[in-house]
């Protein structure tokens, strides 16, 4: 809020975008690391990628794309004054974020059961290139998963605030900024899918 009690809508959005740029650089650095190691170990990356479950990767992509649609619909609903619809879409967005995490947990669990986890014997026995692939896989999808978890909490809070009328048609920049965060998490996954699951 500014001194006269008026919310600086544009300033709030610019602040959120600046934060998103730091996220972009964080994951961008990891993408550069991935590309560098992949060019050094193309065969190992190709082989290790074949061990990942493409069906689960694509299913999770569809889950996140749909959740992004729901997040955008939540904002549109609130902007049009349909607050109960807005709360519903925000809850559905958070719910699909939860589905994404459950699928990811099953995927990681399958790898763990085969001894493939950071420091695991099966992972240490793999060729160095494949070890690097899985190291990057756990780091990047894990970091992304933490962002999804944060987004689920954020969207749940937004759903509550919209439901209580604290976020409404006249003041919904906090919902718009939460949506921006969620969409960026979606964009990062859009790049993670081909790098890890379709690299074979």
């Amino acid at each position: 809020m500014s001194e006269n009690g008026r919310r600086d809508y544009q300033g709030s959005k610019i602040g959120m975008w600046l934060f998103l740029f730091t996220e972009l650089m964080l994951f961008g650095g990891l993408f550069i690391l991935y590309s560098g190691y992949r060019s050094l170990h193309p065969e190992s990356f190709h082989h290790a990628s074949r061990e990942l479950n493409v069906v689960l990767g694509v299913a999770n992509t569809l889950v996140l794309l749909t959740s992004s649609l729901f997040a955008a619909l939540a904002l549109t609903s609130v902007q049009q004054g349909r607050h109960s619809d807005g709360a519903k879409w925000a809850w559905l967005t958070a719910g699909l974020g939860g589905v994404f995490l459950v699928v990811k947990a099953f995927e990681w669990g399958a790898k763990f059961s085969h001894g493939i986890y950071p420091g695991g014997k099966a992972l240490l026995a793999l060729p160095p290139g494949e070890g690097l692939f899985y190291g990057l896989y756990f780091t990047m999808t894990g970091l992304h998963g933490l962002h999804v978890l944060a987004g689920v909490v954020l969207l749940s809070v937004m759903a509550l605030l919209v439901g209580k009328g604290r976020v409404h048609q006249g003041d919904c920049v906090v919902l718009e900024n939460s949506g921006l965060y969620w969409h960026l998490v979606d964009v990062i996954w859009i790049f993670l899918l081909p790098l890890f699951y379709l690299a074979a």
């Binding site: 992004s68 997040a71 960026l184 979606d186 964009v187």
Partner: peptide, 12 residues
């Protein structure tokens, strides 16, 4: 192209 669509429309 997918990222562009998300930036362009979903992120306004």
């Amino acid at each position: 192209a997918k990222a562009w669509l998300v930036f362009h429309y979903f992120m306004h």
